[in-house]
Nucleic acid binder design. Sequence first.
RNA 1: GCGGACGUGGCGGAACGGUAGACGCUAGCGACUUAAAAUCGCUUUCCUUCGGGAGUGCGGGUUCGAGUCCCGCCGUCCGCACCA
Length: 854
Amino acid sequence: MSERFEAAGADARWQAEWEARGTFHADDNSNQPKSYVLEMFPYPSGRIHMGHVRNYTMGDVLARFRRMRGMEVLHPMGWDAFGMPAENAAMEKGVHPGDWTRANIAAMRAELKRLGFALDWSRELATCEPDYYGHEQALFLDFLEAGLVYRKESAVNWDPVDMTVLANEQVIDGRGWRSGALVERRKLSQWFLKITQFGDDLLEGLQGLQHWPDKVKLMQANWIGRSKGLRFKFALERPSTSLGTNGLSNIPFVSSDVETRFSDVEVFTTRPDTIFGASFVAISVDHPLAQALKDSTAGLPEFIEQCRKTGTAAAEIETAEKLGFDTGLKATHPLDPSWQLPVFVANFVLMEYGTGAVFGVPAHDQRDLDFARKYMLPVTRVVASSPEEKDKPVHDEADTDPGLIVNSRFLDGMTSEDAKGAVIARAEAEGWGEGTTVFRLRDWGVSRQRYWGTPIPIIHCDGCGPVGVPRDQLPVVLPEDVSFDIPGNPLDRHPTWKHVDCPKCGAPARRETDTLDTFADSSWYFIRFASQPKDRPFDRAVAEQWLPVGQYIGGVEHAILHLLYARFWTRALQHIGALNVAEPFTGLFTQGMVTHETYKDAVGNWLSPAEVSNSVVTATGEPVTVGRVEKMSKSKKNTVDPGPIVDRYGADAVRWFMLSDSPPERDLPWSEAGIEGAGRLVQRLWRATAPGEGAGGADLDLDRKLHRTIDGVATDIEALSFNKAVAKLYELIGAIEKAKPSASRDTASRTLIRLAAPMVPHIAEEAWARIGGEGLVADAEWPAVDPALLIDDEVTIAIQVNGKLRDTIQAPKGSSREELEALARANAKVLAILAGAEPKKVIAVPDRLVNLVA
RNA sequence: GCGGACGUGGCGGAACGGUAGACGCUAGCGACUUAAAAUCGCUUUCCUUCGGGAGUGCGGGUUCGAGUCCCGCCGUCCGCACCA
């Protein structure tokens, strides 16, 4: 029997054993309760990184634990395999995206297998294969038929570097999320998925997700951004003598065409209660009215141009001055035909939100106030905290709080809330407006001008328009013979691929050459994992057995995009009757990042941890500046490749490190010392689980420790508090090490193997085999807790005087308040402090403490 | 600007409103060893006249008792951002 646990041989041996036995195959037909544990599948970049290891280790512990608790666990793995990096590699290295991707998958699969994850590899899938994306095309057609897909000419976010369209979610501070290039506005015909149709459902569904982090729910709620308010119209007219406040008195004649097209302008507000505080109407520079006025209004084209130049970066918006251009048009107040408001084109009104036009209430909106001050428009208070304050002046800060309505004719005296209802009711009765709900969320533009994605299964016919590819012609497979030597979409310039006949009329037609946003691929992979028939996307009955995913684990960076799209896709499937699941993931956990110290040399170049030891450059002895602990990233060179670490310490040490110390939702600082410590633990465990010598006798303290550990570790694992479970195991190991030989010690030692098995499965199997355990420890049952052993018969009681700890005493468990008080009063230290005085009050908490108040 | 989270030793962090610092890392001392590695034991919040005293970002409050609850600051991080 070897003194040390040799991971190098044992890891591979047990991994082969699990695979040969099919230990982790999930059985659709099992009678056991089912559990679906899923980690976000990786993009096959080529190598796994520590973030993957942490993510998959957490899921693995839960999966293995639940198996031991008698559940049938589905724990699959696959590849989010479409996407830009493959095309970039093609452009840079001349390798085909498919070859590059598949080679990466093979490499990463091998790396993952070395960590011994309890995965059902028989369900492995890659989204770039026709047997996945073909079914996605079928679902797209299902959605199209159900009216959940539409095509629209629209201004899109165009990334000039990646040469593709980006969804709003993929534009960050005006830049492409991948390329970082400044995004341009372009008009293109695009396919959209009607995610806004589910805006209410997606928002309200969040309330039922009790096992999601509040933070993520809040982020989604903010993203969906539902606002209730009033949409209403101002009648427009052009007075015979225009007196623009910006000094343009000779506004040219507006063509009758414009006047007939724009007899009114529609605005949206969440504050209809402030309608009598209006002092202007402002429209976006992109508003059709502004565009129509452009040609006939001197100065307007220049103004619009000026506004466009203002950057979209956060800092610029923050400081940008409110600018307006008085069109000379007048808007008639809907509640007073004699009241006319100036109509401005303004730089702060967004075309994408609401109606692209607003009415300004300077007293109660900061932007409107800034604008009014600049253009000397009236500021009228219409909301006050009390009627007496109706004339309280508004200075530099708008009063945005709700209150009592003042200076507002028939609304006076109402609360803001009542006034909103009153105005909406009147608007609806008189026909000039209606209560509506507006979402910040916009429909999901899914067209991408890329090769390495799911082809959109549409054929464009001059006579019939866009026609879905007939089902029997699916999948629409990507052509292999493509080139990446010039920018743009290789599908579009392929010589033959797009030329097909119209399925309806037979006339020559063109294939859609756009592909789907890769977020579509990840919006249903968890369903395909649960059920993957050849001839259809999934078998409903089988999928419904497993779904929803009980525990989903991944990075918080997917809090909005992926998780919202997946929720939408699932609801869309429910809507068309394909799957009776509303929420795909009932439990969500967002794990923290793996971080590392950063290092720079004297010149300020980043150094990798491998080049540094003891704060000097290993090779040269030059001093190193140790920087802050940051997320591992290639640019800062602070990455640690898991491969060599597994070589050196074995899979279990790496897994243990990933679970120790930091709570899983927080960042985990990687350190050499930490992995060394994890390596030592593995050896300690090896010694602590050595077969006993058959000594007799009971050790009640150890029995209690064991059962508290069994109970506590189970609770901690279910709560994903792995760091606490690890600490409890350390305590048990320490207790076993210190215990004298006894039957209790042998039992604890044997039981420890099962307790550690979900976390460090290889050594657990080896130790299990060493003690002659039956079968695999992976298949063993989680040890049962004896509730009687969770209770101590003697407890430590804290003795306090005035809330300060003075002493601790041992007392029988369950001692009465009176008994405890008597013990406290007799305590030597207490007697010394009280010095004969009678305590005013005594608080005794059974099994806890006694507090004497002097 | 809006919204949210967090703040505990040298470090990662424990702690149903009830003994703050479990467990690990680091560091130090000691044992074993020819020696090293490995392993084991002890120490490791601060101050101390060795009796004790102080202590969970800062200032208040509630409570017999607050790291935990409430109010106000300060700081760090995250999300959104001219969303009407």
